[in-house]
Design a protein around this nucleic acid. Structure first.
Lengths: 179, 179
DNA sequence: ATAGTTACAGAACAATATGTTTGTTATCAT
DNA sequence: ATGATAACAAACATATTGTTCTGTAACTAT
């Protein structure tokens, strides 16, 4: 990738992140992002068709980092016992904590909806293999419950209670949900 | 309230609901709502300052119905045992089911974020009184978990699996969460 | 080093949406 | 019946969006 492209792409991402700390996604205009990133109007549209595409690109970047070697490495990991799966989840929480500053602004407004949907898509893959069946409750419901609860746990943690450690959060979650 | 006001307010609400079945909230323009409701531009702005205010007003309307005599009647209801609390929750689910057609469109995009936040605000009041303490997990986390899980249960139910009954959904929830 | 390619800046542009204002007509409450 | 109020129609300024153009600077490959 061209160095110039990388630079402007980063400038846009950082400007976007900074602005999201001050105001909500929907109240944010493309012009403000352009001004904050200090680039030309035509340059922005050469990179992203719309504000939404920018948001999606940022989510993709984040989750490619957070889930980089998590989902792919099916052979390397065997979560036959519950303990090692909890370690796996805690590992994901650590990655999320690294990206905290970037993620924090992505929790409110339409932004939050899109970010959480992305997060859940990845989590479905992680939890689907692990979930044990239950004759009384539909698997679909239990999977949705496990994934949603975890996603909301992340939002609660990084949004307003980031003083807890990843290990603590993992424990809270696994003591609250049956997998 | 003036009969004319009621009529246009209803026309706007219904137009809004109809349009949300076709496209997302953020893709929806004020002009489209005006056309669908068949009212004048100035009339719309006499009722609501922005599209967001319209959405909030609709949420308030819905939840005033759903939680009408639920939260207020603290004296009348005593949920000392878990069973009667489950009945209470099931009752709320019934009310939500009645408003299903209106609610269904409010689950995606920024719309969903706002609707879910409203729903959770009410649920906090309902669950806060019922939650028993646990020495190992912060009360704040457990409350958030109970509320979020229920809100996501409602979204799952009315969004894509509305063939289940309120009683079934209540059972799914209470078998998945410790209150 | 040079030629060809690609990205950026700057400016102008049409198209669309927003929110407000004005004067008029219709409907309401009593 | 009448004064008050809501709805209407049309026009308005403003702001945002997304596109297009030209000239310039930076990168790449040979």
């Amino acid at each position: 990738m061209d160095r110039r492209q990388r630079k402007t792409r980063n400038a846009i991402f950082q400007a976007f992140t900074r602005l999201l700390e001050k105001k909500t996604y929907s109240a944010l205009t493309v012009q403000e992002i352009i001004d904050e990133a200090d680039i030309s109007r035509s340059t922005f549209y050469a990179h992203f068709e719309t504000k939404d595409e920018l948001l999606k690109a940022m989510c993709t970047d984040i989750f490619n980092h957070v889930f980089s070697h998590e989902i792919m490495s099916e052979e390397h990991h065997d979560f036959s016992d519950k303990g090692s799966f909890q370690d796996h989840i805690t590992h994901i929480l650590c990655h999320l904590q690294e990206k905290q500053q970037t993620i924090k602004g992505l929790f409110s407004g339409e932004c939050g909806e899109i970010f959480m949907r992305y997060l859940k898509e990845y989590l479905y893959q992680v939890f689907d293999r692990q979930l044990v069946d239950d004759k009384d409750i539909p698997r679909e419901y239990r999977l949705n419950h496990a994934v949603s609860s975890f996603a909301e746990t992340v939002r609660w943690w990084l949004g307003r209670h980031s003083d807890y450690s990843p290990e603590e959060i993992g424990r809270f979650y696994f003591e609250s949900v049956d997998i």
